[in-house]
Nucleic acid binder design. Structure first.
Lengths: 121, 121
DNA sequence: CAGAATCCCCTAGGATACTG
DNA sequence: CAGTATCCTAGGGGATTCTG
């Protein structure tokens, strides 16, 4: 599994998944396409700069399709591609893991921080 | 799924998974415990600073257990905990996805970059 | 051997202002 | 409405040096 190329590919997907907004955006598009402004309103906390950058990244990787309707004002819809849809499964599995074990993780952290005081403020 | 708390928990696990070394370290520990120096040699490219930090983070989250044998020179072994082992499945699924679709992703990028020249140097 | 400390750089990401 | 363009900062991560 570690033939270098694979390793690089995996790391670069993981860093995409690990960035602050990509997974959230993808999961928002799960049911139907959404407009830029809908994403912006729904996601809460995202700046429009980061929404743009995140969508560009996802589009570049072929996970999201961008459709412009050239009206005035313009309308732009974003939808998951087939490829993007296949990503949903493993990502949601990981999210489920995170949700299912967050209690254990929180307790582990408390224990660790109690043993090792002053290191984390 | 987006009750805020869950969302935060998920994001923080994803950022762990998305950092440069954590997943690689966890996957190296899949079969048996390893010493610090074994990890350092096997991983290739990691600085000992980042190996230390990564291991501390994993230990803090309860994913990895650290065992010190107080000899001279000291010996320190790292092993996956049960919790860490349960993470293996979803993470490897994601890695498999990344490996399985890296061709598609690469092609999507080429297409995108051809359409939009000069933006990514 | 297994680290802690230090220095330094670079990028992710936020805030704000402007435009077609 | 759906973006660019700027400016700015916190922190991830590398290289190097020191120590029990």
């Amino acid at each position: 599994m570690h033939e270098q190329e694979t390793c690089v590919a995996v790391r670069d997907v993981l860093s995409r998944v690990g960035d602050k907004w990509s997974v959230l955006v993808v999961s928002m598009l799960r049911d139907r396409p959404l407009r830029f402004s809908e994403l912006r309103r729904t996601i809460e906390g995202i700046s429009q700069r980061m929404l743009t950058l995140t969508l560009r990244g996802l589009e570049r990787d072929g996970l999201v399709a961008r459709t412009v309707t050239p009206t005035v004002p313009p309308r732009v819809d974003y939808a998951l591609t087939d490829l993007g849809r296949t990503l949903l499964d493993p990502v949601l599995a990981l999210a489920a893991w995170a949700d299912g074990h967050r209690g254990e993780i929180a307790r582990a952290r408390e224990r660790f921080d109690r043993k090792d005081p002053g290191k984390q403020d």
